[in-house]
Nucleic acid binder design. Structure first.
Lengths: 219, 219
DNA sequence: CCTCATCCTGACCAATTGGTCAAAGGTTTA
DNA sequence: TAAACCTTTGACCAATTGGTCAGGATGAGG
């Protein structure tokens, strides 16, 4: 078939060559996307497989074909969110200057809050409810990442590049503030007269957050 | 009966004079306290009347005697939390200097995060899930309060007392950061080696938050 | 074509859970 | 003491919902 002759730049057959394979991929994608939204909106218990199925316009039994249990689907949703979190984490360039490293990190986190508010909400939900699923991440990946950044920030302090603040609380402040625009989106929108922040407002928010935090630590 | 002769300073009969009345009060208190905790821990849907009843060591049917529906109980829990929020709001003294007004407000909010983490979590849950219950508060009381504070902060800016930051984002930063210690308590504790913050650590957190924010706006 | 493996789905089941109710047990008041 | 009232509670019900399953549909490979 002609379809099967389609190749990408590396000469590998493109996934869409196989109807089954591509349909599978598409379905997984749709389920995960709507699952994330429904979980964010109603919490784990409040979200129903039926609601996710309806959103994805698939019969409920079909969801159970791809994900044996609700928990399995939830796990997968969390997994994806963590990937995004890692992406932001990478943008904290430890070799850059404090000003550059922090402002880039803050900007990246603000972008994520705008692009993936649902994911952020699911994560927040998890933590609020005692992190039954992500406890592992918190104790390993997140803790390690945090400790290396704390070291870097402490070095900046020693070198007199920033004020002697507790790095831990600086990081918490960055997390809390940037994620606020995703997690408390509804409140932010309500206080904005009911309309979502536009491009200019997001930029203004990012600038304000960056300004206050950087100046706040003496940069 | 002797009991009925007990009076308070105003001459009113003390509630405890009446066995029924005091038992009622006590039960309401116990149900609301445990309800708040269970709602915070599992979300509205995840919390079950049975779980709250067990925590309060009362039969489930008894809960329904005091609160006809789960939603009615939840409403009452939210109502109480809002009272605490108002208490913090009052501490933002608009007649004080920027330094005094803000540092007092931040300290108060940190104290509330420490004293009422469950309440804060329930509130966060509400907003994350689109504020189905508290929408009214957001649009009226919260919005009004916010607008008056924005005016005050703008006056400070005009008078050159603080940097020209967007008051809105300054407030969001204060809310996000202070509430982070309650809502993300589990994450904070995990990154603290699994032990809750002690007195000194809370004080250090408050100092850091206050320092960065105040210096960040040029005070 | 034809066979096989994969995918889809309506109907169904069992467990959970919010809420009801009638009867019993206390407390207050006259 | 006795009547009126309030509170407590076990047993029960109906609705929701996660998950199952058997049989049908569809695409891949020979």
């Amino acid at each position: 078939m002609a379809d099967q002759l389609v190749k990408n730049l590396f000469g590998d057959p493109v996934d869409t060559a196989n109807k089954r394979h591509s349909a599978r991929k598409e379905n997984l994608e749709v389920i995960l996307r709507h699952g994330e939204r429904i979980f964010a909106e109603f919490g784990f218990k409040g979200a129903t497989m039926q609601a996710i199925a309806d959103a994805a316009t698939l019969p409920k039994a079909n969801l159970h074909y791809y994900f044996p249990t609700k928990m399995a689907l939830y796990h997968e949703v969390i997994e994806r969110i963590f990937t995004i979190w890692l992406e932001a984490a990478d943008s904290f360039d430890t070799s850059a200057s404090p000003r550059e490293a922090l402002s880039r990190y803050i900007r990246k986190k603000m972008e994520i809050s705008r692009a993936h508010p649902h994911g952020s909400k699911v994560w927040a939900n998890e933590v609020i409810h005692g992190a039954p699923i992500i406890q592992d991440y918190l104790q390993t990946t997140l803790k390690d990442w945090t400790n290396t950044r704390i070291d870097v920030i402490n070095r900046w302090i020693t070198e007199g590049k920033i004020d002697p603040v507790d790095p831990r609380h600086l990081l918490y402040m960055i997390w809390a503030t940037t994620q606020h625009y995703a997690d408390f989106q509804h409140q932010v929108v309500t206080l904005n007269g009911g309309t979502p922040l536009d491009d200019a407002q997001w930029q203004r928010a990012t600038e304000n957050v960056t300004h206050i935090i950087l100046k706040g630590i003496g940069i």
